[in-house]
């Protein structure tokens, strides 16, 4: 991590989610990329590493759980946050078992997501500091 800019990837088939999160987190100085098609997002993940991935769970084409697994395979340091309208106890526990950073049911307050992302950021930063 040459510069301390946090790279954030948002995958959600609801375009408004991507649009608003981009607006909010760009303002916080992050580099934000958004996708509504999870398969396109996967292609990008393969070429480029992100610090934090925020993904929806149920999407056409690819499941958020698959994205979680793939991201952990490609970049184990990346933190994955799942946001979903179909929050159920068993899917949440499955996600935690697979190593999700946090699991946020929709509808959520922006503040909530910001806090989680800040926690993820500090984790990412401390890890990179340790490396220095």
């Amino acid at each position: 991590m040459s510069d301390q800019t946090i790279k954030l990837l948002v995958i959600d088939d609801e375009p408004i989610v991507g649009k608003r999160l981009k607006q909010a987190f760009m303002k916080m100085g992050m580099e934000v990329e958004t996708f509504t098609d999870p398969r396109e997002a996967m292609n990008t993940i393969k070429q480029k590493s992100f610090d934090i991935v925020v993904t929806d769970l149920k999407m056409e084409g690819m499941d958020g759980m698959t994205i979680l697994e793939e991201v952990q395979k490609l970049n184990p340091k990346a933190k994955v946050i799942i946001i979903t309208g179909y929050a159920q106890v068993d899917t949440a526990s499955e996600a935690f078992r697979k190593g999700v950073f946090d699991f946020i049911p929709k509808p959520f307050r922006l503040e909530e997501l910001k806090n989680v992302i800040l926690r993820a950021m500090s984790g990412a930063l401390s890890e990179s500091n340790k490396n220095i």
Binding site: E14, I16, V17, R20, L21, Q23, A24, K27, I83, G85, Y86, A87, P105, K106, P107, F108, R109, L110, E111
Partner: peptide, 21 residues
């Protein structure tokens, strides 16, 4: 019930950003 969460989330996010900015 789950399906309604999506538009609700969109409304909530949009309204919050609108208020902030």
């Amino acid at each position: 019930a789950h399906e309604i969460n999506n538009p609700l989330n969109n409304i909530s996010l949009t309204a919050e950003i609108l208020m902030e900015d």
